[in-house]
Amino acid sequence: TVKFKYKGEEKQVDISKIKKVWRVGKMISFTYDEGGGKTGRGAVSEKDAPKELLQ
Rank of each mutant, 00 (worst) to 15 (best):
I28E: 00
M27A: 05
K47W: 10
Y6A: 06
K51R: 12
V13C: 05
F4E: 00
R41P: 01
S45E: 13
S29M: 13
E9M: 12
G42V: 03
G40V: 06
G8F: 04
F4L: 03
K3S: 11
V44C: 04
K5Y: 15
D33E: 08
I15V: 09
G36A: 11
G8H: 05
K19H: 10
K7G: 09
A49D: 02
T31L: 14
Q55A: 14
W22L: 03
S45M: 10
Q55C: 10
S16L: 09
L54Q: 07
T1Y: 14
V24E: 14
T39R: 08
K3N: 11
K26W: 07
S45L: 15
G8E: 04
Q12L: 13
D33P: 02
R41I: 11
A43F: 15
V2S: 01
F4T: 02
R23Q: 08
W22G: 02
E9D: 08
K47Q: 14
D33M: 06
T1A: 11
T31K: 05
E52D: 09
M27V: 12
I28M: 03
T39P: 05
K5D: 06
T31F: 09
S45C: 09
K19E: 06
P50F: 02
R23H: 07
K19N: 11
G25I: 02
K38W: 06
Y32C: 01
K47P: 04
T31M: 12
M27N: 08
G36T: 07
P50V: 04
K17T: 10
M27E: 06
K20E: 11
T1W: 12
V2H: 01
D33L: 06
Q55R: 12
G25C: 04
Q12M: 12
K51Q: 14
I15T: 05
G37H: 04
T31N: 04
M27Q: 07
T31C: 08
G40H: 06
L54A: 07
V13F: 04
Y6T: 07
Q55K: 13
K38A: 09
K26H: 12
S16V: 10
G35W: 03
E46N: 07
R41T: 10
M27R: 07
S16H: 11
A43S: 14
K17H: 11
T1C: 08
D14N: 11
E9I: 15
K47V: 14
E52V: 10
G36L: 08
V2T: 02
G35S: 05
G25Q: 04
W22A: 03
D33Y: 07
K17P: 00
F30S: 00
I18N: 00
E10P: 08
D33H: 06
I28T: 01
K11T: 06
P50I: 04
E46T: 11
K26I: 12
R23F: 07
F4P: 01
V2A: 02
P50Y: 02
G8V: 02
Y32A: 00
E10H: 12
W22C: 04
K3T: 14
S45W: 12
V24Q: 13
L54H: 05
E9V: 13
G36D: 15
K11Q: 07
K19T: 14
E34R: 10
S29E: 15
A43L: 14
W22V: 05
K47E: 14
W22E: 03
A49N: 01
G42Q: 02
D14T: 07
E52H: 13
K47N: 12
E9W: 06
V21T: 06
A43R: 15
G37K: 05
K17R: 12
P50A: 04
W22S: 03
D14M: 13
Y6G: 03
T31P: 00
F4D: 01
K51E: 13
R41A: 07
Q55S: 11
V13W: 02
K7T: 02
M27G: 04
K17Y: 10
T31A: 08
M27L: 13
T39C: 08
I15G: 02
K5I: 15
D48M: 09
V2I: 13
